[in-house]
Structures are given as structure tokens and as C-alpha cells.
Design a binder for these strands. Sequence first.
DNA 1: ACACACCCTATAGTCTGTATAGGGTCAAGC
DNA 2: GCTTGACCCTATACAGACTATAGGGTGTGT
Lengths: 150, 150
Amino acid sequence: MKIGELAMRTGCRVVTIRYYEREGLLPEPERSEANYRLYGETHVERLAFIRHCRALDMTLDEIRALLACHDDPEGTCHRADVLIDEHLTHVKARIAQLQALEDTLVALRARCQGQRSAAECGILNALAQPPRDAALNEDAEHVPGTHPRR
Amino acid sequence: MKIGELAMRTGCRVVTIRYYEREGLLPEPERSEANYRLYGETHVERLAFIRHCRALDMTLDEIRALLACHDDPEGTCHRADVLIDEHLTHVKARIAQLQALEDTLVALRARCQGQRSAAECGILNALAQPPRDAALNEDAEHVPGTHPRR
DNA sequence: ACACACCCTATAGTCTGTATAGGGTCAAGC
DNA sequence: GCTTGACCCTATACAGACTATAGGGTGTGT
């Protein structure tokens, strides 16, 4: 099948498939006479694996490591276990950070109901003050990813 | 004060301060004879405002909008209110996504205790299957940001 | 013969910074 | 006077995980 069909069957964009190939996650497929990429079922499976991992928010490096496990069925899967554990730890930490952030935003939002001028606005004034609690501390690690890119 | 002192007082890196200036978030300061940037207290306050907003995971565009409110004390703060509300909605949605993700990862992790070969590993096999539940669905929006960049 | 959907490569842009190269300034110590 | 080291400057490239664009080739239907 051509790249468009692979894209449809995996829910992955065409450009993204080419990107994964450049990144070494997908093997280079055969080409037609017209230099079109030609894929088989093994490519569908491998790309589904990758998208599956991406849906779990793994990095391409993590996926590379999992694919290496997968490609070595004689080896142990210990590496895969550890990777999932570490990833789970990241996700949990991220949730805790975001919940602290949510609490701070709720408190901030309660400071103004929009009826006053900007000079009197509790929100703008609170933001101008040096941060007080943990979530507002300059030392707190920045928490990225609230705004999905697309 | 010079840029290094501003950086120390705000917990912001020197290169990041210059970046904010290029992005138009910080006004261009005066320069010394040797072409060094020279800052005053207003810069400290403005940079603290920015870092405060960044700690709340706002984008630079959002911060630009808040600064515009802040710079127009005669105007209404309604725009600031709406912005915080929208941001809060983003954060809440992100928490829900990550919690679904966590559940899926916990279930995945339970499939293998590392004692078997990769070919028999429940984790690798599950990842090779087409996704079943919501968090693993190809249609699910990708959830970025678990891995803080630094 | 032409339109149109699909394919190709190469390059640049997104966002929020970080890293590097290659240089200038200034105070302290020898 | 000279060197050392900490600090400052600009410009450019890089990070991740793609997306967008330009400029072209291929294949099918009317």
C-alpha cells in the first residue's frame, strides 16, 4: 500500500510517517517505479505500536528503546518494564504539579469578578506581587504542556 | 543594575531575559557606555510578573495579553478574568487526560513482572495490539508535556 | 488534453527557551 | 603594565515532535 493508505489505517498523518522514517523508528520501505513508498502489514503493526506509545505520551527515545526490546524477542523484557515504570512516575508527578497549579489558579480567579478597573483588579495585582505559595515560587520547576500544540 | 543582578533577583536566567526582550515582553532597557543593559525596579517587577505567569504555565501570548491589561490601568480587567478562566479550563482538561493515561499505564504495567522473555512480555504484546480503550484510541488527542524540557 | 488527487524532496517554521562561538569590559592581583 | 577571571555583548544553531510551504512528478478519469 502507498503512504496515504498507511496513514488512513493508522490515524497518522503522511508527513508524520515520513518523519518517523527519518528518525529511524520506521524502516525504509520498498519503492515503486515512480519512487513511491510501498508498505506491508509489518509496517502497519510497527506504526500502530509507535502511535500507541505516543498516545501514552512516551518520547520517541523511549519508543526507540521499546522497539529495540520488541525486535529482540530472545532478550529479556526487563528494560521495557523499567521504562514503563519510569514513565508512570513522570505522569504521576505531572498530575500532582498540575493539581497544585489548578488550586492556585482557582484562588487567583476568586480575587476578581471583572467589575473593576484593571488598576484595582485582584488578579493583576496578585500577579504583580512576588509569588508566595509553592506553585508560585520562582524556584518551582516549570510545568509545561498545558497547551497542546497542533 | 546589570542583567546578572536582575537574573539573580528574579530567578530567571540571563539568556532568558534577553529572549523576553526580543519577544517584546520586557521593554528595552538603557545601555551603559560599554553597551551593557541597565535595569531599574520597574524591570524587576515586570519580570517577576512574567515569571509568575510562566509558573502558572501560561503561554507568552497569554502573558502579553495580561501585560497589556496591566499597562492600561484605566481599562477593564475583564479580559484578564476571561484569560484566567480559559487557562483554568485547559489545566483541568489536561489533568483529566493525564489521569486516564495513568490508569492505562498502571494496567499495562500489571501485565508483566519482567520474568519472561521479550516475546512473551505482556507489555510489549499489549503495545503491539490495536488500542482498545479511550486513552489508547488513535483518535484520542495526544497529551504532551509529561517530560519537562530543560 | 486537462483536472485533480496523490506522491516526492527540501527547507523553514512552531514554542520556549538552551547551548555555543567569538568577541568586548572591568576590577583585582602580580 | 599585564594577566586572570567574572561578567557582558551579538549571532546562530539546537531541542522535540511535528507542521507548513514551495516546487515538482505520477496516475486516473473525463
